[in-house]
Nucleic acid binder design. Structure first.
Lengths: 140, 140
DNA sequence: CTACATGCAAAGGGTTTGCACGACA
DNA sequence: TGTCGTGCAAACCCTTTGCATGTAG
């Protein structure tokens, strides 16, 4: 929590109680809540908070790398007709997604802790980073 | 393509040229297009096609497990303040996402083919299947 | 004090739906 | 020929934005 305050201050961003409550709420949650859910929960403590403050704060926290999205970079839905086992390299900057193949990744040993959660039908590895194009662009 | 026709017929679904073109287009694409992009491309061959037919066909193809989404199950955006390395178990039926930890998965050896695509900063494994709740529900 | 954050309400944009017409089987 | 699929346009819903007010630093 102190780390949170420091980071906000050092980033030149104001420390409001809305921001603190929203961050706490997402931290506390283990169910990967959506914006609406965060909003409802935070409203128990700050009844006057608005949904758009939740959104604005969430994007702020993402810029500060304090939280992430479960989904791919903020985008519309994208589709894939490649139904053979494959994996994804995702560029964090431009959002491009490249398929790649790896027998090693196709056959990962499923941890016992996961077997208790349910049955696994598909294994997919996601590697995130900077694609070579975006790397060049940042250097140049 | 014959497999496609068979599957549609066996599913009691009509084989229209719109459906064929949309499936072909998603098959052919290697860039994980969104609905709008598929729409634009298919329109070159069927100028009168409409965007909502693209959407309806895409959901149909997903039900037939002929294509997938890059994203998590059709949903709103969800957030995660767990910034320590972790992985996800996703239930294909109810959409619940459970975190789990695995040092093996944290330290996967990156294939050389990926190193040529760009630099990897984060490795995350996604295991999809049926959670124990949904398994029970289907059996019961 | 002053710039930045918030709340409200309205706009935006991707996706879905109702309905009448058209086309596969 | 009957049923299902399509196109159109409007509805829907999540998310974003503009603006006046409030507040942290």
């Amino acid at each position: 929590m102190n780390r949170f305050k420091d980071l906000l201050t050092r980033s030149g961003v104001k420390l409001t109680h809305q921001r603190m409550e929203i961050y706490c709420e997402v931290m506390r949650a283990s169910d990967h809540p959506d914006a609406e859910t965060v909003y409802k929960r935070v409203r128990k403590r700050i009844p006057t908070i608005s949904l758009d403050t939740v959104y604005r704060t969430i994007w702020l926290l993402m810029d500060l790398v304090l939280i992430t999205t479960l989904d791919y970079p903020r985008e519309r839905m994208r589709f894939d007709a490649n139904m053979t086992p494959h994996h994804h390299f995702i560029c964090a900057s431009c959002g491009i997604v490249r398929d790649f193949y790896s027998e090693q990744f196709d056959n990962l040993k499923i941890p016992d802790t996961v077997k208790m959660l349910g049955s696994v039908e598909r294994t997919q590895v996601e590697l995130r980073g900077l694609c070579s194009n975006c790397t060049k662009r940042k250097v140049g």
